[in-house]
Design a protein around this nucleic acid. Structure first.
Lengths: 125, 125, 125, 125
DNA sequence: GTGGTCTAGACCACT
DNA sequence: GTGGTCTAGACCACT
Protein backbone atom coordinates (compact mmCIF):
# COMPACT_ATOMS: atom_id res chain seq x y z
CA UNK A 1 0.00 0.00 0.00
CA UNK A 2 2.76 2.39 0.97
CA UNK A 3 6.10 2.60 -0.74
CA UNK A 4 8.61 4.99 0.80
CA UNK A 5 12.13 5.29 -0.55
CA UNK A 6 14.35 6.79 2.18
CA UNK A 7 17.17 7.31 -0.30
CA UNK A 8 15.10 9.31 -2.78
CA UNK A 9 15.81 12.98 -3.38
CA UNK A 10 12.21 13.85 -2.62
CA UNK A 11 11.84 14.23 1.14
CA UNK A 12 10.06 11.43 2.98
CA UNK A 13 7.28 13.73 4.22
CA UNK A 14 6.53 14.68 0.60
CA UNK A 15 6.49 11.05 -0.48
CA UNK A 16 3.92 10.38 2.24
CA UNK A 17 1.85 13.35 1.05
CA UNK A 18 1.97 12.00 -2.51
CA UNK A 19 0.98 8.49 -1.47
CA UNK A 20 -1.95 9.66 0.65
CA UNK A 21 -3.05 12.04 -2.08
CA UNK A 22 -3.17 9.17 -4.54
CA UNK A 23 -5.16 6.99 -2.16
CA UNK A 24 -7.68 9.80 -1.81
CA UNK A 25 -7.68 10.51 -5.53
CA UNK A 26 -8.27 6.90 -6.46
CA UNK A 27 -11.04 6.56 -3.92
CA UNK A 28 -9.27 4.01 -1.74
CA UNK A 29 -9.69 6.59 0.99
CA UNK A 30 -13.13 8.22 0.91
CA UNK A 31 -14.35 11.46 2.50
CA UNK A 32 -14.93 10.87 6.19
CA UNK A 33 -12.53 7.94 6.41
CA UNK A 34 -10.09 8.05 9.27
CA UNK A 35 -6.41 8.01 8.39
CA UNK A 36 -3.97 5.82 10.31
CA UNK A 37 -2.85 7.66 13.42
CA UNK A 38 0.47 9.45 13.39
CA UNK A 39 1.99 6.79 15.66
CA UNK A 40 0.47 3.86 13.78
CA UNK A 41 1.78 5.03 10.41
CA UNK A 42 5.09 5.86 12.04
CA UNK A 43 5.43 2.27 13.24
CA UNK A 44 4.15 0.76 10.00
CA UNK A 45 6.57 2.70 7.80
CA UNK A 46 9.35 2.74 10.43
CA UNK A 47 9.57 6.46 10.07
CA UNK A 48 9.83 9.00 12.85
CA UNK A 49 6.43 10.29 14.08
CA UNK A 50 7.61 13.88 13.54
CA UNK A 51 7.98 13.23 9.83
CA UNK A 52 4.48 11.76 9.60
CA UNK A 53 3.15 14.70 11.60
CA UNK A 54 4.72 17.09 9.12
CA UNK A 55 2.91 15.36 6.25
CA UNK A 56 -0.42 15.40 8.07
CA UNK A 57 -0.05 19.05 9.02
CA UNK A 58 0.61 19.93 5.39
CA UNK A 59 -2.39 17.94 4.14
CA UNK A 60 -4.57 19.62 6.78
CA UNK A 61 -3.39 23.06 5.68
CA UNK A 62 -4.29 22.23 2.10
CA UNK A 63 -7.72 21.14 3.27
CA UNK A 64 -7.39 17.58 2.00
CA UNK A 65 -7.72 16.13 5.48
CA UNK A 66 -9.22 17.46 8.70
CA UNK A 67 -7.27 16.79 11.86
CA UNK A 68 -9.21 16.70 15.10
CA UNK A 69 -6.83 16.77 18.07
CA UNK A 70 -7.65 13.95 20.43
CA UNK A 71 -9.66 12.06 17.85
CA UNK A 72 -7.74 11.57 14.64
CA UNK A 73 -7.36 12.72 11.04
CA UNK A 74 -10.13 12.33 8.49
CA UNK A 75 -10.40 12.75 4.72
CA UNK A 76 -12.18 16.05 4.06
CA UNK A 77 -15.61 15.97 2.43
CA UNK A 78 -14.42 18.15 -0.43
CA UNK A 79 -11.06 16.45 -0.89
CA UNK A 80 -11.85 15.22 -4.40
CA UNK A 81 -13.02 18.60 -5.64
CA UNK A 82 -9.92 20.24 -4.12
CA UNK A 83 -7.75 17.80 -6.03
CA UNK A 84 -9.58 18.49 -9.27
CA UNK A 85 -9.25 22.24 -8.77
CA UNK A 86 -5.56 21.81 -8.09
CA UNK A 87 -5.02 19.74 -11.20
CA UNK A 88 -6.81 22.23 -13.37
CA UNK A 89 -4.26 24.88 -12.39
CA UNK A 90 -1.18 22.77 -13.10
CA UNK A 91 -0.94 23.16 -16.86
CA UNK A 92 -1.44 26.95 -16.99
CA UNK A 93 1.21 27.32 -14.31
CA UNK A 94 3.52 25.09 -16.31
CA UNK A 95 3.01 27.18 -19.42
CA UNK A 96 3.71 30.44 -17.57
CA UNK A 97 6.88 29.04 -16.08
CA UNK A 98 8.05 27.66 -19.40
CA UNK A 99 7.47 31.07 -20.98
CA UNK A 100 9.48 32.79 -18.27
CA UNK A 101 12.34 30.33 -18.61
CA UNK A 102 12.47 30.82 -22.38
CA UNK A 103 12.55 34.56 -21.88
CA UNK A 104 15.22 34.11 -19.21
CA UNK A 105 17.58 32.65 -21.78
CA UNK A 106 16.94 28.92 -21.56
CA UNK A 107 16.48 27.19 -24.91
CA UNK A 108 13.64 24.92 -25.90
CA UNK A 109 16.13 22.05 -25.85
CA UNK A 110 17.22 22.86 -22.28
CA UNK A 111 13.65 22.45 -21.08
CA UNK A 112 13.07 19.28 -23.09
CA UNK A 113 16.22 17.76 -21.60
CA UNK A 114 15.06 18.59 -18.08
CA UNK A 115 11.72 16.94 -18.75
CA UNK A 116 13.36 13.84 -20.21
CA UNK A 117 15.50 13.45 -17.12
CA UNK A 118 12.50 13.72 -14.82
CA UNK A 119 10.54 11.30 -16.99
CA UNK A 120 13.22 8.66 -16.64
CA UNK A 121 13.68 9.15 -12.92
CA UNK A 122 9.94 8.95 -12.23
CA UNK A 123 9.34 5.89 -14.38
CA UNK A 124 9.74 3.24 -11.68
CA UNK A 125 7.36 5.15 -9.47
CA UNK B 1 14.05 51.03 -26.76
CA UNK B 2 10.50 49.79 -26.26
CA UNK B 3 8.68 47.33 -28.44
CA UNK B 4 5.02 46.79 -27.54
CA UNK B 5 2.80 44.55 -29.63
CA UNK B 6 -0.83 45.51 -28.97
CA UNK B 7 -2.02 42.42 -30.85
CA UNK B 8 -0.04 39.93 -28.77
CA UNK B 9 -1.74 37.41 -26.48
CA UNK B 10 0.38 38.61 -23.55
CA UNK B 11 -1.26 41.65 -21.92
CA UNK B 12 0.35 45.00 -22.62
CA UNK B 13 1.11 45.68 -18.97
CA UNK B 14 3.07 42.41 -18.86
CA UNK B 15 4.98 43.29 -22.00
CA UNK B 16 5.98 46.55 -20.35
CA UNK B 17 7.08 44.69 -17.24
CA UNK B 18 9.15 42.34 -19.38
CA UNK B 19 10.77 45.18 -21.30
CA UNK B 20 11.63 47.13 -18.15
CA UNK B 21 12.89 43.98 -16.46
CA UNK B 22 15.26 43.35 -19.34
CA UNK B 23 16.54 46.90 -19.30
CA UNK B 24 17.30 46.50 -15.59
CA UNK B 25 18.79 43.06 -16.06
CA UNK B 26 21.09 44.15 -18.86
CA UNK B 27 22.22 47.19 -16.93
CA UNK B 28 20.76 49.77 -19.32
CA UNK B 29 18.82 50.94 -16.30
CA UNK B 30 21.01 51.03 -13.19
CA UNK B 31 20.01 51.16 -9.51
CA UNK B 32 18.92 54.69 -8.63
CA UNK B 33 18.02 55.59 -12.22
CA UNK B 34 14.68 57.31 -12.61
CA UNK B 35 12.10 55.63 -14.84
CA UNK B 36 10.11 57.68 -17.34
CA UNK B 37 6.99 59.10 -15.67
CA UNK B 38 3.70 57.28 -16.20
CA UNK B 39 2.44 60.10 -18.37
CA UNK B 40 5.61 60.36 -20.43
CA UNK B 41 5.71 56.65 -21.18
CA UNK B 42 1.98 56.69 -21.86
CA UNK B 43 2.43 59.34 -24.53
CA UNK B 44 5.56 57.77 -26.00
CA UNK B 45 3.98 54.32 -26.38
CA UNK B 46 0.47 55.68 -27.08
CA UNK B 47 -0.86 53.45 -24.34
CA UNK B 48 -3.43 54.19 -21.64
CA UNK B 49 -1.74 55.64 -18.52
CA UNK B 50 -3.66 53.14 -16.35
CA UNK B 51 -1.88 50.31 -18.13
CA UNK B 52 1.50 51.87 -17.48
CA UNK B 53 0.53 52.45 -13.86
CA UNK B 54 -0.39 48.79 -13.48
CA UNK B 55 3.05 47.75 -14.70
CA UNK B 56 4.79 50.15 -12.35
CA UNK B 57 2.68 49.02 -9.38
CA UNK B 58 3.54 45.43 -10.11
CA UNK B 59 7.25 46.17 -10.40
CA UNK B 60 7.09 48.09 -7.14
CA UNK B 61 5.43 45.13 -5.42
CA UNK B 62 8.23 42.86 -6.56
CA UNK B 63 10.72 45.35 -5.23
CA UNK B 64 12.40 45.96 -8.59
CA UNK B 65 11.54 49.63 -8.54
CA UNK B 66 10.73 52.04 -5.74
CA UNK B 67 7.97 54.55 -6.24
CA UNK B 68 8.43 57.81 -4.37
CA UNK B 69 5.10 59.68 -4.33
CA UNK B 70 5.49 63.11 -5.87
CA UNK B 71 8.95 62.40 -7.22
CA UNK B 72 8.81 59.36 -9.49
CA UNK B 73 9.89 55.75 -9.80
CA UNK B 74 13.45 54.59 -9.39
CA UNK B 75 15.32 51.34 -9.98
CA UNK B 76 15.84 49.69 -6.58
CA UNK B 77 19.39 49.35 -5.26
CA UNK B 78 19.06 45.56 -5.01
CA UNK B 79 17.15 45.08 -8.28
CA UNK B 80 19.85 42.96 -9.88
CA UNK B 81 20.21 40.58 -6.94
CA UNK B 82 16.43 40.23 -6.77
CA UNK B 83 16.35 39.21 -10.41
CA UNK B 84 19.12 36.69 -9.86
CA UNK B 85 17.33 35.22 -6.82
CA UNK B 86 14.12 35.00 -8.81
CA UNK B 87 15.78 33.24 -11.71
CA UNK B 88 17.44 30.76 -9.40
CA UNK B 89 14.04 29.64 -8.17
CA UNK B 90 12.39 29.24 -11.57
CA UNK B 91 14.01 25.97 -12.62
CA UNK B 92 13.26 24.02 -9.40
CA UNK B 93 9.63 25.16 -9.66
CA UNK B 94 9.55 24.06 -13.28
CA UNK B 95 10.91 20.65 -12.35
CA UNK B 96 8.34 20.19 -9.58
CA UNK B 97 5.48 21.12 -11.88
CA UNK B 98 6.74 18.84 -14.64
CA UNK B 99 6.97 16.00 -12.13
CA UNK B 100 3.39 16.60 -10.97
CA UNK B 101 2.10 16.69 -14.52
CA UNK B 102 3.85 13.45 -15.41
CA UNK B 103 2.36 11.84 -12.32
CA UNK B 104 -1.02 13.31 -13.26
CA UNK B 105 -1.03 11.34 -16.46
CA UNK B 106 0.53 13.66 -19.01
CA UNK B 107 3.23 12.10 -21.14
CA UNK B 108 6.71 13.41 -21.74
CA UNK B 109 5.64 14.18 -25.32
CA UNK B 110 2.64 16.22 -24.15
CA UNK B 111 4.94 18.50 -22.20
CA UNK B 112 7.46 18.76 -25.03
CA UNK B 113 4.70 19.75 -27.43
CA UNK B 114 3.48 22.47 -25.06
CA UNK B 115 7.00 23.84 -24.81
CA UNK B 116 7.45 23.79 -28.58
CA UNK B 117 4.28 25.77 -29.08
CA UNK B 118 5.34 28.40 -26.54
CA UNK B 119 8.79 28.56 -28.05
CA UNK B 120 7.40 29.36 -31.51
CA UNK B 121 4.98 31.96 -30.23
CA UNK B 122 7.66 33.70 -28.18
CA UNK B 123 10.28 33.65 -30.96
CA UNK B 124 9.57 37.03 -32.54
CA UNK B 125 9.77 38.65 -29.12
CA UNK C 1 -40.57 25.25 7.41
CA UNK C 2 -38.62 27.72 5.29
CA UNK C 3 -38.31 31.43 5.95
CA UNK C 4 -36.45 33.37 3.28
CA UNK C 5 -36.10 37.13 3.46
CA UNK C 6 -35.32 38.46 -0.03
CA UNK C 7 -34.54 41.89 1.40
CA UNK C 8 -31.90 40.69 3.86
CA UNK C 9 -28.24 41.58 3.52
CA UNK C 10 -27.31 37.92 3.64
CA UNK C 11 -27.55 36.38 0.17
CA UNK C 12 -30.55 34.12 -0.43
CA UNK C 13 -28.39 31.10 -1.20
CA UNK C 14 -26.75 31.49 2.23
CA UNK C 15 -30.11 31.76 3.93
CA UNK C 16 -31.12 28.50 2.31
CA UNK C 17 -27.88 26.90 3.47
CA UNK C 18 -28.51 28.13 7.00
CA UNK C 19 -32.09 26.86 7.02
CA UNK C 20 -31.15 23.44 5.70
CA UNK C 21 -28.23 23.23 8.10
CA UNK C 22 -30.55 23.86 11.02
CA UNK C 23 -33.01 21.25 9.84
CA UNK C 24 -30.17 18.74 9.70
CA UNK C 25 -28.74 19.87 13.02
CA UNK C 26 -32.08 19.62 14.82
CA UNK C 27 -32.75 16.23 13.33
CA UNK C 28 -35.80 17.27 11.32
CA UNK C 29 -33.80 16.00 8.36
CA UNK C 30 -32.02 12.74 9.18
CA UNK C 31 -29.11 11.03 7.40
CA UNK C 32 -30.41 9.37 4.26
CA UNK C 33 -33.42 11.64 3.93
CA UNK C 34 -33.99 13.04 0.45
CA UNK C 35 -34.02 16.80 0.08
CA UNK C 36 -36.69 18.49 -2.02
CA UNK C 37 -35.57 18.67 -5.64
CA UNK C 38 -34.08 21.92 -6.92
CA UNK C 39 -37.19 22.56 -9.04
CA UNK C 40 -39.62 21.74 -6.24
CA UNK C 41 -37.91 24.04 -3.75
CA UNK C 42 -37.57 26.69 -6.43
CA UNK C 43 -41.31 26.69 -7.00
CA UNK C 44 -42.19 26.50 -3.30
CA UNK C 45 -39.98 29.45 -2.34
CA UNK C 46 -40.50 31.31 -5.64
CA UNK C 47 -36.76 31.61 -6.00
CA UNK C 48 -34.59 31.14 -9.07
CA UNK C 49 -33.53 27.49 -9.47
CA UNK C 50 -29.93 28.60 -9.99
CA UNK C 51 -29.93 30.03 -6.48
CA UNK C 52 -31.18 26.77 -5.02
CA UNK C 53 -28.60 24.89 -7.05
CA UNK C 54 -25.84 27.08 -5.62
CA UNK C 55 -26.92 26.24 -2.08
CA UNK C 56 -27.05 22.53 -2.81
CA UNK C 57 -23.65 22.58 -4.49
CA UNK C 58 -22.14 24.33 -1.49
CA UNK C 59 -23.71 21.86 0.96
CA UNK C 60 -22.40 19.00 -1.16
CA UNK C 61 -18.90 20.49 -1.08
CA UNK C 62 -19.01 20.62 2.71
CA UNK C 63 -20.15 17.02 2.76
CA UNK C 64 -23.44 17.71 4.53
CA UNK C 65 -25.45 16.36 1.64
CA UNK C 66 -24.63 13.93 -1.15
CA UNK C 67 -25.91 14.64 -4.61
CA UNK C 68 -26.64 11.57 -6.71
CA UNK C 69 -27.00 12.62 -10.36
CA UNK C 70 -30.36 11.57 -11.71
CA UNK C 71 -31.77 10.63 -8.33
CA UNK C 72 -31.56 13.64 -6.04
CA UNK C 73 -29.80 15.02 -2.97
CA UNK C 74 -29.62 13.17 0.34
CA UNK C 75 -28.47 14.07 3.85
CA UNK C 76 -25.03 12.52 4.37
CA UNK C 77 -24.64 9.75 6.92
CA UNK C 78 -22.06 11.72 8.89
CA UNK C 79 -23.74 15.11 8.57
CA UNK C 80 -24.29 15.55 12.30
CA UNK C 81 -20.71 14.74 13.24
CA UNK C 82 -19.46 17.10 10.54
CA UNK C 83 -21.55 19.89 12.02
CA UNK C 84 -20.23 19.19 15.51
CA UNK C 85 -16.64 19.13 14.25
CA UNK C 86 -17.20 22.42 12.46
CA UNK C 87 -18.70 24.08 15.52
CA UNK C 88 -15.85 22.94 17.71
CA UNK C 89 -13.40 24.80 15.49
CA UNK C 90 -15.32 28.07 15.35
CA UNK C 91 -14.51 29.36 18.83
CA UNK C 92 -10.72 28.83 18.64
CA UNK C 93 -10.72 30.62 15.29
CA UNK C 94 -12.73 33.45 16.81
CA UNK C 95 -10.26 33.77 19.67
CA UNK C 96 -7.28 33.86 17.31
CA UNK C 97 -8.89 36.54 15.18
CA UNK C 98 -9.85 38.62 18.22
CA UNK C 99 -6.29 38.37 19.47
CA UNK C 100 -4.92 39.55 16.15
CA UNK C 101 -7.33 42.46 16.01
CA UNK C 102 -6.42 43.56 19.54
CA UNK C 103 -2.75 43.39 18.61
CA UNK C 104 -3.51 45.30 15.41
CA UNK C 105 -4.73 48.27 17.41
CA UNK C 106 -8.43 47.69 17.81
CA UNK C 107 -9.77 48.15 21.33
CA UNK C 108 -11.88 45.72 23.29
CA UNK C 109 -14.77 48.17 22.93
CA UNK C 110 -14.39 48.27 19.13
CA UNK C 111 -14.89 44.53 18.96
CA UNK C 112 -17.80 44.58 21.42
CA UNK C 113 -19.53 47.23 19.34
CA UNK C 114 -19.11 45.17 16.18
CA UNK C 115 -20.63 42.17 17.90
CA UNK C 116 -23.55 44.20 19.24
CA UNK C 117 -24.33 45.45 15.75
CA UNK C 118 -24.31 41.96 14.30
CA UNK C 119 -26.40 40.67 17.21
CA UNK C 120 -29.12 43.23 16.52
CA UNK C 121 -29.14 42.63 12.78
CA UNK C 122 -29.34 38.86 13.22
CA UNK C 123 -32.03 38.97 15.93
CA UNK C 124 -35.15 38.70 13.73
CA UNK C 125 -33.64 35.66 12.09
CA UNK D 1 14.41 43.12 21.03
CA UNK D 2 12.89 39.64 21.39
CA UNK D 3 10.65 38.54 24.21
CA UNK D 4 9.69 34.87 24.21
CA UNK D 5 7.61 33.37 27.02
CA UNK D 6 8.19 29.60 27.07
CA UNK D 7 5.29 29.15 29.51
CA UNK D 8 2.72 30.93 27.32
CA UNK D 9 -0.15 29.03 25.78
CA UNK D 10 0.76 30.36 22.34
CA UNK D 11 3.43 28.08 20.88
CA UNK D 12 6.97 29.43 20.79
CA UNK D 13 7.18 29.23 17.00
CA UNK D 14 4.10 31.45 16.76
CA UNK D 15 5.53 33.94 19.22
CA UNK D 16 8.62 34.18 17.03
CA UNK D 17 6.43 34.71 13.97
CA UNK D 18 4.56 37.48 15.77
CA UNK D 19 7.74 39.19 16.93
CA UNK D 20 9.34 39.09 13.49
CA UNK D 21 6.12 40.27 11.88
CA UNK D 22 6.10 43.29 14.17
CA UNK D 23 9.70 44.12 13.43
CA UNK D 24 8.88 44.06 9.72
CA UNK D 25 5.67 45.98 10.20
CA UNK D 26 7.33 48.72 12.23
CA UNK D 27 10.15 49.02 9.71
CA UNK D 28 12.90 47.85 12.07
CA UNK D 29 13.44 45.15 9.48
CA UNK D 30 13.26 46.51 5.92
CA UNK D 31 12.76 44.68 2.64
CA UNK D 32 16.01 43.05 1.62
CA UNK D 33 17.38 42.91 5.19
CA UNK D 34 18.84 39.59 6.22
CA UNK D 35 17.28 37.90 9.22
CA UNK D 36 19.46 36.32 11.89
CA UNK D 37 20.37 32.78 10.82
CA UNK D 38 18.40 29.89 12.23
CA UNK D 39 21.32 28.90 14.42
CA UNK D 40 22.13 32.44 15.55
CA UNK D 41 18.55 33.13 16.67
CA UNK D 42 18.44 29.69 18.23
CA UNK D 43 21.45 30.53 20.40
CA UNK D 44 20.27 34.06 21.19
CA UNK D 45 16.82 32.95 22.36
CA UNK D 46 18.08 29.63 23.76
CA UNK D 47 15.47 27.84 21.71
CA UNK D 48 15.89 24.72 19.62
CA UNK D 49 16.89 25.40 16.01
CA UNK D 50 13.99 23.22 14.82
CA UNK D 51 11.53 25.61 16.41
CA UNK D 52 13.14 28.62 14.76
CA UNK D 53 13.18 26.75 11.46
CA UNK D 54 9.45 26.12 11.78
CA UNK D 55 8.81 29.86 12.21
CA UNK D 56 11.01 30.76 9.25
CA UNK D 57 9.37 28.14 7.03
CA UNK D 58 5.95 29.53 7.92
CA UNK D 59 7.01 33.11 7.20
CA UNK D 60 8.49 32.00 3.88
CA UNK D 61 5.26 30.26 2.90
CA UNK D 62 3.31 33.42 3.68
CA UNK D 63 5.72 35.35 1.46
CA UNK D 64 6.89 37.69 4.23
CA UNK D 65 10.45 36.46 3.98
CA UNK D 66 12.44 34.75 1.24
CA UNK D 67 14.72 31.96 2.31
CA UNK D 68 17.67 31.18 0.09
CA UNK D 69 19.27 27.86 1.10
CA UNK D 70 22.96 28.30 1.60
CA UNK D 71 22.70 32.08 1.89
CA UNK D 72 20.11 33.10 4.45
CA UNK D 73 16.61 34.53 4.95
CA UNK D 74 15.65 37.97 3.76
CA UNK D 75 12.65 40.26 4.25
CA UNK D 76 10.56 40.12 1.06
CA UNK D 77 10.25 43.26 -1.08
CA UNK D 78 6.47 43.23 -0.78
CA UNK D 79 6.33 42.27 2.92
CA UNK D 80 4.65 45.51 3.95
CA UNK D 81 1.94 45.31 1.31
CA UNK D 82 1.28 41.67 2.23
CA UNK D 83 0.81 42.71 5.85
CA UNK D 84 -1.56 45.49 4.86
CA UNK D 85 -3.59 43.12 2.68
CA UNK D 86 -3.74 40.64 5.54
CA UNK D 87 -4.93 43.26 8.00
CA UNK D 88 -7.64 44.42 5.66
CA UNK D 89 -9.17 40.96 5.71
CA UNK D 90 -9.16 40.55 9.49
CA UNK D 91 -12.30 42.52 10.38
CA UNK D 92 -14.59 41.00 7.71
CA UNK D 93 -13.45 37.53 8.79
CA UNK D 94 -14.15 38.46 12.40
CA UNK D 95 -17.66 39.63 11.53
CA UNK D 96 -18.44 36.44 9.61
CA UNK D 97 -17.24 34.27 12.45
CA UNK D 98 -19.19 36.29 15.03
CA UNK D 99 -22.30 35.89 12.90
CA UNK D 100 -21.83 32.13 12.68
CA UNK D 101 -21.28 31.83 16.42
CA UNK D 102 -24.43 33.82 17.17
CA UNK D 103 -26.38 31.57 14.82
CA UNK D 104 -24.76 28.52 16.43
CA UNK D 105 -26.33 29.41 19.75
CA UNK D 106 -23.73 31.54 21.48
CA UNK D 107 -25.08 34.73 23.02
CA UNK D 108 -23.73 38.23 22.54
CA UNK D 109 -22.53 38.11 26.15
CA UNK D 110 -20.64 34.86 25.57
CA UNK D 111 -18.61 36.50 22.82
CA UNK D 112 -18.04 39.67 24.85
CA UNK D 113 -16.75 37.61 27.74
CA UNK D 114 -14.32 35.76 25.49
CA UNK D 115 -13.01 39.05 24.17
CA UNK D 116 -12.61 40.47 27.66
CA UNK D 117 -10.57 37.48 28.72
CA UNK D 118 -8.28 37.78 25.71
CA UNK D 119 -7.95 41.52 26.26
CA UNK D 120 -6.70 41.00 29.81
CA UNK D 121 -4.33 38.20 28.91
CA UNK D 122 -2.80 40.15 26.03
CA UNK D 123 -2.37 43.37 27.99
CA UNK D 124 1.20 42.81 29.22
CA UNK D 125 2.24 41.94 25.71
C1' DG E 1 28.88 29.57 6.73
C1' DT E 2 23.41 28.86 5.21
C1' DG E 3 18.57 26.62 5.20
C1' DG E 4 16.18 21.96 5.10
C1' DT E 5 15.24 17.22 6.57
C1' DC E 6 15.13 13.60 9.76
C1' DT E 7 15.54 10.65 14.00
C1' DA E 8 14.72 9.74 18.96
C1' DG E 9 12.13 10.70 22.53
C1' DA E 10 9.44 13.73 25.97
C1' DC E 11 5.37 16.20 27.30
C1' DC E 12 0.88 18.64 26.67
C1' DA E 13 -4.27 18.98 26.17
C1' DC E 14 -8.09 16.68 24.74
C1' DT E 15 -11.47 12.44 23.59
C1' DG F 1 -6.12 6.54 22.82
C1' DT F 2 -5.43 11.19 19.55
C1' DG F 3 -2.84 15.30 17.29
C1' DG F 4 0.55 19.14 18.40
C1' DT F 5 4.80 21.15 20.26
C1' DC F 6 9.43 21.07 21.58
C1' DT F 7 14.30 19.68 22.62
C1' DA F 8 18.78 17.56 21.35
C1' DG F 9 21.50 16.50 17.93
C1' DA F 10 22.90 14.53 13.19
C1' DC F 11 23.43 15.01 8.29
C1' DC F 12 22.61 16.93 3.58
C1' DA F 13 23.29 20.19 -0.36
C1' DC F 14 24.58 24.55 -1.47
C1' DT F 15 27.14 29.45 -1.10
Amino acid sequence: MFLIDPLSRTPIYEQIIQQLTRLIESGVLSPGDQLPSVRALSLQLRINPNTIQKSYTELDKNGLITSVPGKGCFVSPNAQSLLRAHKRKLMPQFKDLAKELLLAGFSKDDLIQVISQIDEKEKPL
